[in-house]
Amino acid sequence: MDLLSLAVAAVAVFIGAAGQRMIGMGWGLVVTPAVALVAGPLAAVLVVNLYGALACLVILPSVWRDIDWRRLAWLAVPAVAMMVPGLLLARGADTDALRIVVGVIAVVGVVVSVAFTSSARALDGPPLRVAAGATIGVLNASVGMGAPALGIYTLLSGWQDRTFVATMQPFWVIVSGVIVAIRPVVAPEGAPEWPWWGWALIVVPVVAGVLLGNRLAHLVNRTVVKWSIIALSLAGGLALIVTGTTALLA
């Protein structure tokens, strides 16, 4: 049994679940680099999507009234359509190369998202929504890292109100649920070596993180939370790049 990956996953999903509840994203940015570092990119895809769907299901009842169903459809349909190509990409790529890809996506995605934050111009419409959804689907299925593409879309479109936080919960339930369902057929290998009780144990920090996020959502400065997640994501992404590069050069 891989106790290190189990412990790292437990801490990461707790932080990611709290961030997901408070700002509508952060789950993949936190959990993917952490789990990929200790268990590999394919394992990270499974862990991120399985427990991500669970976290969003727990959050969903509290945000149901604010969901933007039309925008959800524009993003979710192309995301689902691109999942099989994403899983096939993950299955055929080199493990160390995938680590580097995950790290680069994390770092570049976060940096670009932050850079766009300063732009006052808002862009939105069906083409951008479809492109964003398709990109999220590919990245989430291949490396468990669809959040940077989502972040860039929200910053470009100016969609950063309470409907964003609400709509992201059913969106990730759909996206993550479909990936978990089709993964055993398309890319069955690469699951973490945990016993059944280890998989059950991870549910505890997921629910605890959501509950903490519920308590802090109206008390904590969201700017502080956002920058904390950004810092953790950058650190995890850089660690993955170094680890993958070192292994390829060895």
Rank of each mutant, 00 (worst) to 15 (best):
L3I: 15
L3D: 10
L6T: 02
V8R: 07
V8K: 03
V11L: 15
I23H: 06
G24S: 11
G26D: 07
G26W: 05
L29C: 05
A34Q: 01
V35H: 11
V38M: 14
P41A: 01
V45F: 06
L46C: 10
V47F: 03
A53H: 00
L54N: 02
L54Y: 10
S62T: 13
R65E: 13
D68T: 06
L72W: 14
A73T: 10
G86D: 11
D94V: 11
D96F: 09
I100S: 09
V102W: 01
V104Y: 02
V104E: 06
I105F: 13
V111K: 05
V112C: 07
S118K: 15
S118Y: 13
S119E: 13
A120V: 04
G125H: 12
G125T: 04
L128Q: 04
L128V: 02
G133E: 07
G137F: 04
V138D: 09
S142C: 10
M145L: 15
G146S: 10
I152P: 10
Y153P: 10
L155E: 15
S157H: 01
S157L: 02
R162I: 10
V165Q: 11
T167K: 03
M168Q: 15
V175E: 03
S176A: 15
R183P: 06
V186Q: 12
V186D: 07
W194T: 05
W196I: 08
W196P: 01
W197C: 02
G198Q: 05
I202W: 04
A208V: 08
V210M: 06
L216F: 13
V220W: 12
N221R: 14
R222C: 09
R222E: 13
R222I: 03
T223W: 06
K226E: 13
I230M: 05
I230G: 01
L232K: 04
A239R: 12
V242P: 15
T243I: 04
A247M: 06
A250S: 14
